[in-house]
């Protein structure tokens, strides 16, 4: 099954729907300052990146292949340590937190998920409760209620008993988001969540993320599609040459000039009927 159609997802709404959510969020959940990073003795991947994320925001991280997007996400959740600079979580440096403390505040969904064993969806989502319950205590009624609520919230309650390995890419992405909800972390970091999804599921996923953010969570997600930033995020951060070259409302920063700078591609930008912006590659229509 290559469609999310068997699950209930919210209808796509215009990008402006995400804006009020940003205005309501004031508390900084995560703040990164002057991050530098290189793999081994290689070329620096990040050279002074700073970023703050507030509740209710949907931050789209844009940049070319190898531009350091995934590396930045791993630094934000403490999977990598910066060579210089710091990440603060709830006002405290990340280095002072245990893995479980971090997991209560940030959930992370990696780009590739190669699960070799056929775990049931319910059991996979229940792994999110490790952050709350630890490795040894049995899950109690509350934990199972949270797992059930997370499955229902994403409309995948009907998949609960199915093996994860038999699901389509879109369904798997929903499972991983449900697991992040079960983690009850206020911030969810996702590495290219739309990659591998068909066109319809990409946009349904982005709409779902905006809904979840409107409930008070924050999202940071990387994407290869500037359109996803324009139509699905409340804020766009452009990464180029290891630095943030733009950070602001998507309509202000995802401009033809910046798209050319990031991807070496000429595009034109058009406002469509309901005020949304679309990009059209030069020569792609004639």
């Amino acid at each position: 099954m290559d469609s999310l159609m068997d699950v209930e997802l919210p209808r796509l709404r215009p990008a402006r729907a995400a804006r009020p959510a940003m205005a309501t969020g004031s508390g900084v959940l995560l703040a990164a300052a002057d991050l530098h990073f290189a793999y081994g003795a290689g070329r620096p991947v990040l050279a002074g990146v700073s970023l703050a994320v507030r509740a209710g925001e949907v931050v789209a991280l844009l940049g070319a292949n190898g531009g350091g997007k995934s590396t930045l996400l791993k630094l934000l959740v403490g999977l990598l340590e910066p060579a210089h600079g710091s990440v603060h979580l709830g006002g405290r440096p990340l280095a002072g937190w245990s893995r479980r403390d971090i997991a209560r505040r940030v959930a992370y969904i990696p780009q590739t998920q190669a699960m070799p064993f056929p775990y049931r969806v319910r059991d996979l989502v229940a792994l999110g409760r490790i952050a709350r319950r630890g490795l040894f205590d049995r899950l109690n009624r509350d934990d199972h209620a949270v797992v059930d609520a997370s499955l229902r919230r994403l409309g995948i309650a009907g998949l609960a008993e199915r093996p994860y390995t038999e699901l389509s890419g879109g369904q798997r992405q929903l499972c991983l988001i449900a697991r992040a909800l079960a983690q009850e972390a206020p911030l969810i970091v996702m590495d290219e969540p739309a990659t591998g999804l068909d066109y319809g599921n990409q946009w349904r996923l982005l709409a779902l993320v905006r809904e979840l953010a409107a409930e008070g969570r924050a999202f940071v997600q990387t994407t290869h599609h500037p359109e996803h930033a324009l139509g699905g995020a409340s804020r766009a951060v452009l990464l180029h040459g290891g630095r943030v070259i733009e950070d602001g409302p998507p309509n202000d920063v995802v401009t033809p000039e910046q798209v050319r700078r990031l991807y070496g591609l000429d595009v034109t930008r058009h406002r469509v009927g309901d005020g949304a912006m679309v990009l059209v590659p030069e020569g792609g229509h004639g």
Binding site: K74, V77, G78, L79, R99, R100, I102, A103, R104, V106, A107, Y108, P110, Q113, A114, M115, P116, F117, Y119, D123, L124, L127, G128, I130, A131, G134, L135, F136, R179, Q183
Partner: peptide, 18 residues
């Protein structure tokens, strides 16, 4: 339970709190 998390890969297990 820790082994279940590790089966998803190191980064995921760590991000789940293991």
């Amino acid at each position: 339970r820790a082994l279940d998390a590790l089966a998803a890969g190191d980064d995921e297990a760590a991000s789940l709190g293991v």
